[in-house]
Nucleic acid binder design. Structure first.
Lengths: 128, 128
DNA sequence: TCTTGACTTAGAGCGCGCTCTAAGTTGTAG
DNA sequence: CTACAACTTAGAGCGCGCTCTAAGTCAAGA
C-alpha cells in the first residue's frame, strides 16, 4: 500500500481541522503533537493518524481542558500503554468537570429563559 | 426605614459574591457596575440591589458572554425602559449561544465517556 | 500620639492561548 | 531564468479578563 499519497501538508490539515497553520505549529512546538514526519524539503507531512489525534485534541480543548493538562496527556500517550491508568484518571476528572459545567450552564439558561419571558411580558403589556 | 444598615463595604460584597475586591473595582471602572454610593470617607457602599446586579453579572460571565457585551447590556440598563427590546434581543442571542455550547459539550461528553469505557475494558483485560 | 489596616485611584503586570512577524529555503509555473 | 507561493524556525506581540502595585487617605484602637 502506498502511504505516501495519504500524507497531508500543513495547509491541508489546517483546512481539515479548522485550526490555523500557526496553531498547528504551535501545538507541535509545545508537545501536543509529536513526531510529525518531514518531507525531504523539511515540510511537515501529516498522516491520517495525526489528523485523528488533532481532532481529539480539539475535543479536549472544547471541553475546557487547559493546555498544560493536554501536554501531560500527550506525554502519557507517547509513553505507551503503561500510562493507560493515569490517562483514564484524567478522562474521568475531565468528565466530572464537564458534567459540572453542563449543570451550571443549564441553571443559568433557566435564569436567562425566565428573564426573556419577563421582558417579553413587559413589552407585550406596553404595546398591546 | 433605615437603609443605612443595609449598605455593605467592598470586602463584604467580595465575600458575598465570590468576586475579589480588585474585580469589583475593575467592574465599576469599566462601567459594568454604576453609581455605587460612597460613604463620607469616599469608601464604596453597596446596596442590596447592587449585590443583585453583581450576581446577575456573574451569571452572564459564566455563560461565556464577553465583557464588552456585558458593558453594552449595563449601558442599556442605565438608559432605562426604552432599551428593553435591545436587552431582550441580547438575552435571546445569549440563549442561542448557551444552547449551542450545551449541545457541543454533551457531544464531547459522549466521546469522553466512550473513551473511558474503552480504556476501562483494556485495563480489565490486562489485569483480569 | 502612633500604628494598623481597610479603603481610595491610576496604572502596570500577568497568564492563557494563540497569532503574527522576520528572515530564510525550496519547488513549481510562466 | 525568474518570480512566486508555500513552507521553515525562532521569537515577539496581542486580546482577554483579571490581578497586583504604588502612593495616599482615613478611622479606630493601644
Amino acid at each position: 500500500m502506498n502511504t505516501q499519497t495519504e500524507l497531508l501538508a500543513i495547509q491541508d490539515v489546517a483546512e481539515a481541522t479548522g485550526l490555523s497553520v500557526h496553531t498547528l505549529r504551535y501545538y507541535e512546538r509545545i508537545g501536543l503533537i509529536h513526531s510529525i514526519g518531514r518531507a525531504q524539503n523539511t515540510h511537515r507531512r501529516y498522516s491520517m493518524d495525526d489528523v485523528g489525534w488533532i481532532e481529539f485534541l480539539k475535543k479536549l480543548r472544547a471541553t475546557g481542558m487547559p493546555i498544560h493538562q493536554m501536554q501531560r496527556y500527550a506525554e502519557l500517550q507517547r509513553m505507551g500503554d503503561e500510562t493507560l491508568p493515569e490517562r483514564l484518571e484524567m478522562l474521568k476528572e475531565l468528565r466530572r468537570s464537564v458534567e459540572a459545567h453542563l449543570a451550571e450552564l443549564q441553571e443559568h439558561l433557566k435564569i436567562i429563559q425566565y428573564k426573556i419571558e419577563l421582558y417579553g411580558e413587559i413589552l407585550a403589556e406596553r404595546t398591546p
